[in-house]
């Protein structure tokens, strides 16, 4: 099956983001404030796909992330499934290439991911402090990274149909 060029460009952007995530992450050391480029990649994909595809992608990515942090296996899959579905669903009401919309969207998605993961893992009591203190800053750094990525790859992402 021939992949249409816009979809190929999207796949390349996502691959670059995932690779950058694993290359850049060690530079931040153990800091919880490092940007989550995998989440950015998921959102870039989900907002240009159907909600079901967003949910499936969120589940797969979440399960893989659970494999590298297996304290509550399945919790990230749960959180990213919801985030991926909502991202696909919200594309009907937002313009994904708009920088302001993208900013609010990524920030909210990052916070929602953290809240859902803590809830799914049943760690609300122990994770409340992290949610209040580090999550907003992590969401900010992820939002900044997504803005940068959007500026860099804007021309490539513009042609991708949001279906």
């Amino acid at each position: 099956m021939r992949i249409p060029p816009p979809r190929l460009k999207l796949a390349l952007v996502l691959a670059v983001l995932v690779a950058a995530h694993f290359v850049l992450r060690p530079r931040f050391g153990p800091s919880p404030l490092a940007p989550d480029l995998v989440l950015v990649a998921l959102l870039f994909f989900a907002i240009r796909s159907r909600p079901g595809a967003g949910a499936a992608a969120g589940f797969v990515v979440g399960l893989l992330m659970d494999a590298v942090t297996p304290t509550a296996f399945g919790s990230m899959a749960f959180a990213l499934t919801v985030v991926g579905y909502l991202a696909g669903w919200l594309k009907a009401v937002v313009f994904p290439d708009n920088l302001l919309v993208n900013t609010v969207f990524v920030f909210a998605a990052s916070l929602a991911r953290d809240v859902l993961q803590v809830l799914a893992a049943g760690q609300l009591r122990s994770g409340a402090a992290a949610l209040l203190v580090t999550s907003p800053f992590a969401a900010l750094s992820t939002t900044a990274a997504s803005l940068l990525a959007l500026l860099v790859f804007r021309s490539w992402l513009r042609g991708v149909p949001t279906r």
């Binding site: 949910a55 589940f59 399960l63 509550a72 399945g74 749960f78 799914a120």
Partner: peptide
């Protein structure tokens, strides 16, 4: 996907 996530959990 949600069910599978809960199963994993």
């Amino acid at each position: 996907c949600l069910v599978l996530s809960l199963v994993a959990l």
